[in-house]
Amino acid sequence: MTGLKLKNKSKNEMTDNLYLYAVARIRSRELSLLNKADIDQLMNCKSEKDALQFLKDKGWGRDGAETAEEVLMAEREKTWDLLRELVDDMSVFNVFLCVNDFHNVKAAIKQAYKGTKIPNMYYTDCTLDPETVKKAIIEQDFSLLPEHMREAAKEAYEIQLHTGDSQLCDIIIDKAALETLYAEGNASGNELIEQYVELKVAQADINIAIRSVKTGKDKDFLRRALVPCKSLDIEKLIESAAMGMEAIYDYLNKTVYSDAVPALKESAQAFERWCDNRIIEYIRPQKYNPFTLSPIAAYLLARENEIKTVRILLSGKRNDIADNVIRERLRDMYV
């Protein structure tokens, strides 16, 4: 028993020390993350063009990146390039990419069904080569896919092609994606990633339950779509959804998501913002943690949050949305 404890201790120390170099570099990189003052300055820009210029002055984008989307895409690529440089075994980040694989499965099924290809329909940031996914679906060679995707991909493909029911096809793929995300996250052994996947799955379940009330879906639909997680009792959520919106709010008030109820009552966007801010709350302590993968994962999530916030802000400026409305949609920042 003592031997096992010593072995585990030694393993934990090795894991701690594995990311010393990466975390030290991330600490320096955190200095260039946008803070609240930067967001205020961006808000004060009169137009999207001015805001983009402000971001370029801060080092955002790459040569040739002109439009907002190009600049944001360049920033995302820069983040992943940095992570690839810092971490030898990128599989530790699969939890953040596995959902994109399922999106590509969905895109390939739609392409096979409609027989036309929509430009930029495949994600390139994923764990599986999009071409392999496409080939597996188009040629119905599901063995090309990993085991956890195979069954869902086959079932969704057959439903889409035989019944044309896109919604059911999406539900099957989305559920498989969330189950994979949850399993990957819990297998990571990293507390931060476990919290992240727990929130992501609960967020998806709550959204599905709310939408099912609005669209009048039955319990069977919910049982098919919802993914079990530790922080929600799926059966109680299904029962609540069957009774209506207020019952869902009542149930959530008894869970760790009671703070989210006012946001849910406001709008779906407000709930999404609440979830994003909760993730920032989870990752904030990592600013003071010099060990483990967690500060690196926190940096990745902070960058994703930053890019999302800037996208909302630029889109608001582009569409002449009032500043107070844009501000309501902005996320909290990591630094």
């Binding site: 030290a24 570099r25 320096s28």
Partner: peptide, 14 residues
């Protein structure tokens, strides 16, 4: 060695 590894990370950036 632990200090060196972390130090190298800082020096890479600054």
């Amino acid at each position: 060695s632990m200090g060196g590894v972390a130090g190298a990370g800082v020096i890479t950036e600054d």
